[in-house]
């Protein structure tokens, strides 16, 4: 996908775009600077790639060094490193894209596809399909309830429950809410936004466990001097 973009502009019509590297000639004002930077272009992007690789290495290190990787702190540090790596990858990726070395799938509608309400309404899925989905949801629910019945240990239960619930949510969103039959661009807009934002809320958890350990109402909350 070319996010929020259209090649009409890309090609350098009178749109308010940056000149592509091939057509920088318009920039009379910056001629000396351009000469200076022409050679550094690759170098700088290379530098960016180096930074990105460095951050990925840091992320891997953070993942490898932490004894318990499934601590939110360590997850968070890894995520931050990966994000910084992503930030540094933007510029090289843009360069590749500009030079046509990096292709992204397009989401154009096929000609003549019917629009919203007029004409035959596009509605995919049959009763059979929806019954199958409903059946799937029911089976998952039964598994969840069975877990509760058989008294699985709390943390295993939590993990499985969250996993199953995510599957159920995905089924509902995909089939009942019909997102599976919408265009990919809508899916790629809505889902990542929600996933990112909800994952961000998970950053609260290091503090909840920290709060637990620092509670004043807990016996032995403070190590006394002689205990140390």
């Amino acid at each position: 996908m070319r996010p929020f973009d259209q090649p009409v502009v890309e090609a350098g019509r009178v749109g308010g775009e940056l000149p592509s590297s091939g057509s920088g000639g318009r920039l009379r004002a910056f001629a000396p600077l351009r000469r200076l930077t022409a050679d550094t272009d690759l170098l700088l992007n290379g530098l960016c790639v180096l930074f990105a690789v460095g951050f990925i290495a840091l992320a891997v290190r953070s993942a490898a060094m932490s004894g318990a990787f499934i601590s939110t702190d360590s997850l968070f540090m890894t995520a931050v490193c990966l994000m910084l790596a992503g930030v540094f990858m933007v510029s090289p990726a843009l360069m590749l894209w500009e030079r046509g070395l990096l292709k992204m799938p397009s989401f154009a509608i096929p000609e003549g596809e019917a629009l919203i309400d007029e004409g035959p309404i596009h509605f995919e899925g049959s009763m059979r399909l929806f019954l199958n989905v409903l059946g799937g949801l029911l089976v998952l629910t039964v598994i969840e309830v069975a877990l509760a019945y058989f008294q699985v240990p709390l943390y295993i239960m939590l993990t499985i429950l969250i996993g199953l619930s995510l599957i159920k949510a995905a089924l509902i969103v995909a089939y009942f809410m019909h997102l599976r039959f919408e265009r990919m661009s809508l899916v790629l807009t809505l889902i990542p936004i929600l996933v990112v934002c909800i994952c961000l809320l998970f950053i609260f958890f290091p503090d909840s466990t920290r709060s637990l350990n620092l509670r004043t109402t807990r016996a032995g909350a403070v190590a006394t001097p002689e205990a140390r």
């Binding site: 940056l18 318009r26 920039l27 930077t37 992007n45 960016c48 930030v87």
Partner: peptide, 22 residues
């Protein structure tokens, strides 16, 4: 001056500020 900017300059100052700030 009719100019829409310069990619190279953008890259330069992005990297310079990123390095300094980070």
């Amino acid at each position: 001056v009719y100019s829409h900017g310069s990619n190279r300059l953008e890259v330069v100052w992005t990297i310079v500020t990123a390095v300094i700030f980070v």
